[in-house]
Computed example of a mutant assay.
Amino acid sequence: MISPNRPARDIYQIVEAIVEQFTTLPGSQVRLRLEIETRVPDVLERAKVRTLVESANTLGFVEKSLE
């Protein structure tokens, strides 16, 4: 799990310690997947949902689901 308070730091450490070890191997193919799971206490406003979906599209997320 990556801390939502400092995700950039945690992701950097993962890349530096693990991903780079694989990417330096000849012929290796590395895929990374980021999954975000969130629970909110109330229903999201339509504007917030639209913003989140547009951001996910812009950033290239493949699967987007807001329930």
Rank of each mutant, 00 (worst) to 15 (best):
residue 3 S to W: 02
residue 34 L to A: 09
residue 1 M to H: 10
residue 39 R to H: 04
residue 32 L to Q: 11
residue 29 Q to A: 11
residue 28 S to G: 02
residue 42 D to M: 07
residue 27 G to C: 05
residue 61 F to D: 01
residue 60 G to M: 03
residue 63 E to H: 10
residue 8 A to C: 04
residue 29 Q to D: 10
residue 26 P to S: 11
residue 1 M to D: 15
residue 58 T to P: 00
residue 55 S to E: 09
residue 22 F to V: 09
residue 64 K to P: 00
residue 46 R to V: 09
residue 29 Q to K: 09
residue 34 L to F: 12
residue 29 Q to P: 00
residue 30 V to K: 02
residue 39 R to E: 13
residue 43 V to D: 08
residue 23 T to I: 14
residue 54 E to T: 10
residue 59 L to A: 12
residue 2 I to K: 02
residue 61 F to L: 11
residue 7 P to T: 05
residue 36 I to C: 05
residue 9 R to H: 05
residue 31 R to C: 05
residue 10 D to Q: 09
residue 64 K to I: 15
residue 19 V to R: 13
residue 30 V to I: 15
residue 59 L to K: 04
residue 63 E to V: 05
residue 27 G to E: 03
residue 27 G to R: 05
residue 33 R to P: 00
residue 12 Y to V: 04
residue 61 F to Y: 11
residue 60 G to S: 05
residue 17 A to I: 09
residue 12 Y to R: 10
residue 9 R to L: 11
residue 6 R to L: 07
residue 43 V to P: 01
residue 11 I to F: 11
residue 21 Q to G: 10
residue 31 R to M: 08
residue 58 T to S: 13
residue 10 D to M: 06
residue 30 V to E: 06
residue 48 K to G: 00
residue 39 R to D: 07
residue 50 R to P: 00
residue 35 E to Q: 07
residue 55 S to Y: 09
residue 14 I to S: 04
residue 6 R to E: 09
residue 67 E to S: 06
residue 51 T to H: 10
residue 42 D to T: 12
residue 54 E to S: 10
residue 53 V to F: 01
residue 45 E to C: 04
residue 49 V to F: 02
residue 33 R to F: 09
residue 52 L to A: 14
residue 31 R to F: 13
residue 53 V to P: 00
residue 24 T to A: 15
residue 24 T to V: 14
residue 49 V to D: 01
residue 21 Q to M: 12
residue 63 E to N: 06
residue 34 L to Q: 05
residue 37 E to C: 02
residue 43 V to M: 08
residue 59 L to Q: 05
residue 34 L to N: 04
residue 53 V to R: 06
residue 65 S to R: 13
residue 32 L to D: 04
residue 6 R to T: 15
residue 27 G to H: 05
residue 15 V to G: 14
residue 48 K to H: 08
residue 25 L to N: 02
residue 41 P to Q: 00
residue 16 E to I: 09
residue 29 Q to I: 14
residue 25 L to C: 07
residue 50 R to Q: 13
residue 10 D to S: 03
residue 13 Q to F: 11
residue 11 I to G: 03
residue 23 T to R: 15
residue 14 I to V: 15
residue 22 F to R: 11
residue 16 E to H: 12
residue 5 N to E: 12
residue 51 T to C: 06
residue 14 I to G: 05
residue 57 N to C: 01
residue 53 V to I: 13
residue 52 L to P: 00
residue 39 R to P: 00
residue 67 E to A: 14
residue 30 V to T: 14
residue 36 I to P: 00
residue 6 R to A: 10
residue 59 L to C: 08
residue 31 R to T: 11
residue 27 G to F: 03
residue 57 N to M: 07
residue 40 V to S: 02
residue 41 P to S: 01
residue 17 A to L: 14
residue 3 S to N: 15
residue 42 D to E: 15
residue 64 K to E: 06
residue 63 E to W: 03
residue 15 V to S: 10
residue 47 A to T: 10
residue 11 I to D: 03
residue 35 E to W: 06
residue 33 R to Q: 10
residue 55 S to W: 07
residue 40 V to M: 04
residue 59 L to S: 03
residue 14 I to D: 07
residue 17 A to V: 09
residue 64 K to W: 00
residue 19 V to W: 05
residue 53 V to M: 04
residue 61 F to T: 01
residue 43 V to R: 13
residue 39 R to M: 05
residue 62 V to D: 15
residue 10 D to L: 00
residue 15 V to L: 15
residue 6 R to Y: 07
residue 7 P to G: 06
residue 2 I to A: 03
